[in-house]
């Protein structure tokens, strides 16, 4: 449940707007980088939570 709220914050809130700026890292737009980095982190978080629960 907490992870779901984190997800809402990461992908469905004005937080995304923060990264919507014409900045580039090695030519890659910031927003594109943000989405995939946040996405990967979110998946890692889910995996970590489930590992914590054990079998």
């Amino acid at each position: 449940m907490a992870a779901f709220l984190v997800g809402l914050l990461l992908f469905c809130s004005p937080v995304t707007a923060l990264f919507d700026q014409p900045l580039y890292w090695k030519g890659i737009p910031l927003l594109y980088l943000y989405f995939f980095a946040a996405w990967a982190m979110y998946i890692a978080l889910l995996a970590w939570i489930l590992r914590g629960k054990g079998e």
């Binding site: 449940m1 992870a3 779901f4 997800g7 992908f11 469905c12 996405w39 889910l46 489930l50």
Partner: peptide, 20 residues
């Protein structure tokens, strides 16, 4: 643009609720 993403972010977020 990034408008194609919600279709995949939605299920990603929803996955957190699958446990229950």
């Amino acid at each position: 643009g990034v408008g194609f993403l919600p279709t995949y972010l939605g299920p990603t977020m929803a996955a957190a609720l699958w446990g229950s």
